[in-house]
């Protein structure tokens, strides 16, 4: 497997009006500590804003933090927008308060992995590192 000559790029965003940042802050720091490039788009984002940023930045991963109940609408919308723009290959992660019963809907809509509130950041880092190591690197 060819190695990667650059760090993994991940976009972190908060969708909707929810402004709790503790979780996303902790994760941003942990990913940075793990050598990743974290692009933060700020609060109060719409799915369209996140999709536009993800495409311009051509990130490898899009991570969405949500703590209010709007995720059942906004996450599928985001996944749809990414696919429409030909960016469906990006890994789409969601984290925060997401009830178990919403999982099937979100997974079916294109969310690749859900990390619920209080997930160990090391688990997230491991998951991303493993995923990244399976992605084709650049030829030397």
């Amino acid at each position: 497997m060819a190695g990667h000559t650059r760090p993994l790029r991940i976009l972190l965003a908060k969708l909707g009006m929810d402004t709790h940042t503790v979780g996303v802050t902790v994760i941003a720091h942990a990913l940075r500590e793990a050598g990743m490039e974290v692009i933060f788009t700020g609060l109060k984002q719409t799915p369209a804003m996140v999709a536009a940023a993800a495409i311009q930045e051509d990130v490898d991963v899009v991570g969405i933090s949500t703590l209010s109940a709007g995720h059942t609408r906004s996450l599928p919308q985001l996944a749809q927008l990414l696919r429409e723009a030909g960016a469906g290959d990006k890994l789409l992660l969601a984290g925060g308060v997401i009830p178990e019963e919403d999982r099937p809907l979100l997974e079916q809509a294109g969310v690749d992995r859900i990390f619920t509130m209080g997930s160990d950041t090391r688990e997230i880092v491991d998951y991303l590192n493993q995923w990244w190591s399976r992605q084709p690197g650049s030829p030397d």
Partner: peptide, 9 residues
């Protein structure tokens, strides 16, 4: 670590 938090956007 080589990591970064890019927040200018």
């Amino acid at each position: 670590t080589g990591g970064a938090i890019l927040g200018d956007r």
